[in-house]
Computed example of a mutant assay.
Amino acid sequence: MKPRIQITIVIALLFLFPLACADIPPPAVPETQGFSSATTMTVLGTATESDSMTWQISNLVLDALLSPAGSVLVSTDGGAVLVPELPVFDDILTDTPGEVQYSIAYSENTVADQGLIGYVKSSALDTANQVVGTRNLETSKVLEFVGFDTGRAVSSEDMVVDGAGSIGITDDLFICPFAAASTGITPEFCNIVEMGGDVDMTLMSLATTASERNVAASADVPVAADYSITVTGFGDIPASGSASAFIGAHLQEGTTTTLGTFNFEPFGDVDAYLIGKGEDVQYSETTTVSGEITAFSKVLSYQSGIRRIS
């Protein structure tokens, strides 16, 4: 008799950073786009589904080297940053924000062969600014499969959120006055998170969701990504095969130390900061089950922002 495995795992990775450490979402471009699709299949035989999406966005110039805020003076040594307090610098140095770039990727590949197949999926992508509680990308799917003699269903899903940003002026980024008052600049960051799941089954009921948010009108809204996977059988009959889910993250965050305010004639007062790399986090996790699976569930969440939400 095959062993029965009953596993239920719920994991939430919520990364909480102080003001010196956070993703800064770029605002939407002037013209935004929306895509949506809905798929329903009931098949006795073979069914396939292949989805792929990549999306890059910048608040300045896409694929260019990251530029610090135009009204920030960066020295050539020692990592010092000088922020003028007088409007005259906006005219001299051009008032451009610190650059932020994001790359988002999502893919799904499903092949169900020689069996009774039920498949339902919905996907939506909206490149407009999002608020707390909404997402730029949302997908959900349900795959039910009962294989015949040599029938099997293989499905994999993967989502990546990759962001990097240069030095920014806090007053230009936040609506919340308390966030803007706590420091004059936001430091550099470079964060990438990948999550997803795989199944190889002869009998199963599979449900997955994937979503992410990386575009907002202000930095008050945190960047977020979520993935969930659930595998069960039918009634008292367990699922049969193997299933796994994973997350990998590499988070690099800068810090700022206030050095003071100095008078630089004839331009007036200048705020001085010392910048540098202040944090490096690497995290990976994979969960795998195989055999006769009564229940398998995994929930993965990522959130990064100067203003976090529960």
Rank of each mutant, 00 (worst) to 15 (best):
E144F: 01
N214G: 14
S244M: 03
V132M: 12
T258Y: 15
S36Y: 10
E212C: 11
S182E: 15
T170I: 03
D149F: 12
P30L: 08
L86R: 13
L44Q: 13
L274S: 11
Y106S: 10
P84V: 06
E157Y: 08
V72D: 00
A239C: 06
Y102L: 09
S36T: 11
S58M: 10
K141R: 15
S240G: 02
Q101T: 08
F189G: 04
G115E: 05
T256F: 11
I185N: 02
V221H: 05
T94A: 11
A180N: 14
I237K: 08
T208R: 12
L19Y: 08
D77E: 13
D226N: 10
V100Y: 03
I5A: 03
F267L: 14
A243L: 05
V193T: 12
I92T: 09
L259P: 00
I237M: 10
I7W: 02
G305P: 02
E31M: 11
E138K: 09
A124I: 05
T40S: 12
V289R: 04
G305K: 01
D113M: 03
V132S: 13
T202P: 00
I104R: 10
G268S: 07
S301C: 07
V10K: 04
V154T: 13
C190F: 07
S182G: 11
T54F: 13
T32H: 01
F174R: 03
E292K: 02
I293L: 04
E85W: 01
L93K: 04
P266V: 09
V29C: 04
S58P: 04
F264Y: 10
D149L: 14
E31H: 07
G305I: 05
S103R: 14
G163S: 14
T139A: 13
E279I: 13
I247M: 15
P238Y: 06
F246V: 09
N59P: 01
L206I: 06
V43T: 12
V299P: 00
M204W: 05
T183C: 08
I293Y: 01
D95V: 02
G268C: 07
E99Q: 15
D158N: 15
P30W: 08
D63N: 15
G79F: 01
A180T: 15
A245W: 02
G133M: 13
T150Y: 08
D113F: 04
T32G: 00
T54L: 14
N214Q: 14
D271N: 11
A105T: 15
T294R: 09
R4L: 14
A210K: 11
V289C: 10
S36R: 13
I237N: 00
P222C: 10
S228P: 01
W55K: 08
R213E: 06
R307Y: 03
I306M: 05
V231K: 07
M159K: 09
V100W: 00
F15R: 12
A69L: 00
P84M: 07
F17P: 00
T258W: 12
R135E: 15
Q252K: 12
N191H: 14
P238S: 06
S156D: 10
D220M: 08
S155W: 04
I104S: 07
S75K: 03
P30G: 07
T257G: 06
P238F: 11
E194T: 15
P97H: 02
P27W: 08
V100R: 05
T186M: 12
V29D: 04
G147M: 03
V61K: 11
